[in-house]
Structure formats: C-alpha cells, structure tokens
C-alpha cells in the first residue's frame, strides 16, 4: 500500500463516522482537528474502525500520530503493509 492509498482509507473512515463533514480540499499537513470538527470520541472511532476493518492496532500512546493525514500515512502505511504481509 502506498501512502496515498493509506490516506484514502483514513478519509473513507472519517467519511463514515462524520458524514456531516466536508472532506474536499483538506490540507494533508495540517491537524485534522483544526480543519474538521472532530473530537476525542471521533478519534476513538477512527482507531476502532482501523482495528475492525483492517486489523490494525493503534495503542493509546500513539493516538497523536493520527493528527494529520500526512502523519497518519507515515504511521499507518507500514502497519497496513505488515498486516498484508502477515496475511
């Protein structure tokens, strides 16, 4: 999986948990929280959807790594690839 594909997966999850948000034109290097109305409950859902849909575990101390789309891609892409390789 590429970083771009990884961002797409994250965006799909956000779209599912916050269908009332407009995801067009998001800056990839800016914190999601600063561009969208997402609170800690929503971030919990992102983490849980990653586990449920993709078998990816994000320990609580790593939540800050999900701050922006860029940082998500940085942190999650290797995890996606590890899961794929393991499967």
């Amino acid at each position: 999986m590429t970083k771009e594909e990884c961002k797409q997966v994250v965006l799909e999850i956000i779209e599912e948990i916050a269908p009332d948000e407009d995801l067009e034109g998001l800056s990839h290097d800016v914190r999601l929280r600063d561009q969208l109305d997402l609170d800690s409950m929503d971030f919990l859902d992102i983490v849980m959807e990653l586990r449920k849909k993709h078998g990816i575990e994000v320990p609580e101390e790593d939540y800050p790594k999900l701050a922006s789309l860029d940082s998500c891609a940085e942190y999650l892409t290797p995890k996606f690839n590890a899961v794929k390789a393991g499967a």
């Binding site: 599912e16 948990i17 916050a18 009332d20 109305d37 609170d39 409950m41 929503d42 859902d45």
Partner: peptide
C-alpha cells in the same frame, strides 16, 4: 441542520 460539535451531533455520529 449544519450545526457542529453539539451533543445532538455527537450522538448521531457516535451511533451512526
């Protein structure tokens, strides 16, 4: 409709 961040909106999101 369109309001953000209030309890009703959180509730709808959390329960999908």
């Amino acid at each position: 409709p369109g309001a953000k961040g209030t309890p009703l909106i959180k509730l709808l999101r959390q329960l999908r």
